[in-house]
Design a protein around this nucleic acid. Structure first.
Length: 418
DNA sequence: TCTGGGGTCCTAGGACCC
DNA sequence: TCTGGGGTCCTAGGACCC
């Protein structure tokens, strides 16, 4: 049995934790740079406020409905996420954190025999609320995809109070029949459109298809999904939590930038993040992609990328930074108003199997990186940084509606007025 | 006069997720 | 005046080689 536990409109709920005054109000949270709406609380959802709509396009609707607006406060969300995951993790010793607000629990071989999954689910919900003031939904199912489907039912279908269980053929059929095919994990807008032309409208319709036929018509990904919906586990536990095959760090700027130094510093910051994530999963790369771009929404769209090939696979921040300095002139173009840039490591391989170069002295310094990582993990990321990371010019993120970092900065501690 | 295979690698863009 | 997220994986199609 699997469970999927996730928070209801996590970012919006997180904003309400330390600000009870807005708990009964409609709240939305914006993406980086206040670009789009990325979280809509249940109260705001009733006002039909669309997710992932550019903010400036719905400004009027938000004002008219007196919706509370918040900029993304990742420092707060990351901290609350960690607390929430710790509480959830107490309910199963095999937990896989899938995203900032979702975690799968695998009860295969669980030490405790659970007779009543409903009750167990409500236990989780109650405990998470009591200890973190975050509302969660819980779904149980014999495969990860069915647990996801149950979780969807728990939160969206009437008659479920935040917990849904698929533990019989009857419950599987009932929940899948009530679920639009587009809400299935792995089926997006485009795929749903094609499926609906074939008269496959609900999750149940999809589950009734021949998996091999779906593979032939669409992809191996959909074949797996169909099998999972039929109760056959295809996303093996260790596959759900497989190492990443590529790792990116990209970001748009709060304001357009034209300055070469600022752009270069931004790229170096991204490559440092990528390098850190690579080391964290024990991977390294021989190919590093770097790109810069102007706004695709405006005329004269400029986009340039470069793939740097190292002679030996590495995850060394300094080596990455040097690579960027080396090829930066190929990317930068004076006069362009840069909107976005990023760095990605492609074709990752395991650090356990490094193939050194016979004729060259090593280009990287794993000991130095290990030292850097342990200092930063102890005293916080950024405590120790490479010199070229430090911004000489400010490029800030636009966050006009930022809430305080209640839990991570002393001067942001919530104050209680008596 | 016209036609013709098979494999690998690369890349941009598509699709999906949160 | 101007504004449009971030991350990962897959695949079709082009280029090139023999």
């Amino acid at each position: 049995m699997y469970a999927l536990v996730d928070a209801v409109a996590f970012y919006a709920s997180a904003e309400k934790v330390f600000d009870p005054a807005i708990r009964s109000k409609p709240v939305v949270v914006l993406t980086n740079n206040d670009g789009c709406i990325c979280a809509v609380c249940p109260i705001a959802r009733k006002l039909a406020i669309p997710k992932f709509q550019p903010y400036f396009q719905v400004k009027k609707i938000l004002e008219d409905n007196q919706v509370v607006i918040r900029s993304s406060n990742y420092e707060l969300y990351a901290d609350l996420s960690e607390r929430m995951m710790n509480v959830i993790g107490r309910f199963c010793d095999n937990q896989h954190i899938y995203s900032i607000d979702e975690s799968f629990l695998n009860f295969t071989g669980f030490k405790k025999l659970i007779h009543d999954w409903h009750r167990y689910g409500h236990d989780i919900r109650r405990t998470v609320w009591r200890e973190t003031k975050l509302p969660v939904g819980v779904g149980f199912g014999p495969t990860a995809t069915l647990a996801k489907a149950a979780n969807h039912a728990a939160k969206k279908l009437p008659g479920f109070d935040g917990v849904a269980v698929i533990d019989s053929e009857a419950s599987r059929v009932a929940i899948l029949k009530a679920m639009d095919v587009q809400d299935v994990w792995g089926v997006g807008r485009r795929l749903a459109k094609k499926l609906k032309v074939m008269n496959i409208n609900t999750a149940f319709d999809l589950a009734e298809q021949d998996p091999r036929k779906m593979k032939r018509l669409f992809s191996i990904v959909l074949e797996r999904t169909v099998n999972e919906l039929r109760g056959k586990s295809c996303l093996a536990w260790d596959e759900v939590r497989q190492d990443k095959k590529e790792i990116f760090s990209t970001r748009s700027f709060g304001e357009r930038i034209t300055d070469a130094t600022a752009l270069k510093t931004a790229l170096i910051n991204h490559c440092v993040i990528v390098a850190r994530k690579l080391r964290a999963q024990g991977s390294h790369t021989q190919r590093l992609l770097m790109f810069v771009a102007s706004s695709p929404h405006q005329d004269g769209y400029y986009k340039k990328s470069y793939i740097y090939e190292f002679s030996v696979a590495t995850a060394d921040s300094c080596v990455f930074a040097n690579a960027i300095s080396e090829v930066f002139d190929h990317l930068y173009k004076p006069g362009v108003r840069f909107y976005k840039c990023g760095v990605g490591a492609l074709e990752l391989s395991s650090q356990m199997f490094q193939q050194p170069d016979l004729f060259q002295t090593p280009i990287d310094n794993p000991k130095l990186m290990k030292c850097l990582d342990s200092i930063n993990s102890r005293y916080g990321v950024g405590t120790l940084a490479i010199a070229s990371e430090t911004p000489t010019t400010r490029w800030h993120m636009k966050r006009a509606y930022l809430s305080p970092h209640y839990t991570t900065r002393w001067h942001n501690l919530p104050k209680i007025h008596c």
